[in-house]
């Protein structure tokens, strides 16, 4: 990301702070929700959903994925595909 103008970088710094507050807020939400009694599957879904949002925020802004080059995105899509496969398959062994 080198070669950015000063104004751009300063804009980004404001963005980072906003993302930071969003992450903090989501952390509070996820902890709070864990104390609410709900069916286990729903609980898992909600917690993972929030975690995915937080992870996307970190990846998109702190790791600059939102403006990253195609080659990196390509590598990550490939990885995520195999990752999903690895995650799901062992649990489906008996199906």
């Amino acid at each position: 990301m080198s070669g950015h103008s000063e104004v751009e970088v300063k804009k980004q710094v404001t963005l980072y702070l906003r993302v930071f507050f969003a992450l903090m807020a989501l952390t509070v939400v996820t902890v709070a929700i864990s104390y609410v009694h709900m069916p286990i599957l729903l609980g898992v879904a909600v917690a993972l959903f929030i975690a995915c949002i937080k992870a996307s925020l970190v990846a998109a802004f702190f790791m600059h994925l939102s403006t990253e080059k195609k080659i990196i995105i390509f590598i990550l899509i490939l990885t995520v595909f195999f990752f999903a496969f690895l995650l799901a398959t062992p649990s489906l062994h008996h199906t």
Binding site: T89, L92, H93, H94, T95
Partner: peptide, 18 residues
């Protein structure tokens, strides 16, 4: 090659769909 590995495991009590 990433999505064929379980053919080494046909006899581990694997389900028919798998």
């Amino acid at each position: 090659s990433f999505i064929v590995w379980a053919h080494h495991m046909y006899l581990t009590g694997m389900g028919t769909t798998m």
